[in-house]
C-alpha cells in the first residue's frame, strides 16, 4: 500500500516539472525503481493509474525500469552484483557492502506537449 505514497510523490514531481516547462499534457512518465526496494511493478502501475486522475498526467503512460543492485565491498573494494538476497562480498566475505546502485527510486523523464487539446 505504500506504493500509493510513492506514486503520489512521483505525480507531485512530474506536475512540478511539467508546470516549470509549460507542459499541459503529460503523455509518458518514465521511472526507475531500484531492485532493493522490492516494489512490485504491477502494484505500482495500478496505483499510478488510480492516482493520475485530475493531474496533467491523467492520460499518461508509465514505464518502469528496474535498476539492478550493485555493491562495493568496503574491505577489498570489489564491485559486484549480489546473487539473490545474499549481499556478502564473494571475494573476502565482508557482510556489510555499500549499495552503490539499485536502492533508489527516481523519475527519469517525462514526455508531453503544451497542446491542451
Amino acid at each position: 500500500m505504500h506504493e500509493i505514497a510513492m506514486v503520489e510523490d512521483v505525480l507531485r514531481i512530474v506536475e512540478e516539472v511539467a508546470r516549470d516547462n509549460g507542459i499541459s499534457r503529460i503523455d509518458q512518465v518514465n521511472v526507475v525503481i531500484g531492485e532493493y526496494l522490492m516494489v512490485k511493478p504491477s502494484l505500482f502501475e495500478f496505483a499510478f493509474m488510480a492516482a493520475r486522475e485530475g493531474t496533467r498526467a491523467a492520460g499518461a503512460g508509465l514505464t518502469i525500469e528496474t535498476e539492478q543492485v550493485e555493491l562495493e565491498c568496503p574491505g577489498c573494494h570489489h564491485r559486484y552484483s549480489p546473487r539473490k538476497i545474499n549481499y556478502n562480498c564473494p571475494r573476502c566475505g565482508n557482510p556489510n557492502p555499500l549499495i552503490t546502485k539499485g536502492k533508489e527510486m527516481f523519475v527519469k523523464s517525462i514526455e508531453g506537449d503544451d497542446n491542451t487539446g
Binding site: 505514497a5 510513492m6 510523490d9 512521483v10 514531481i13 512530474v14 516539472v17 516547462n21 507542459i23 521511472v31 533508489e104 527510486m105 527516481f106 523519475v107 527519469k108 523523464s109 517525462i110 514526455e111 508531453g112 506537449d113
Partner: peptide, 13 residues
C-alpha cells in the same frame, strides 16, 4: 518533447 527529470522519489521524507 522529452524532459529529463532525474529526481528522487520520497526525498521530502
Amino acid at each position: 518533447m522529452e524532459i529529463k527529470v532525474m529526481k528522487r522519489v520520497l526525498d521530502r521524507n
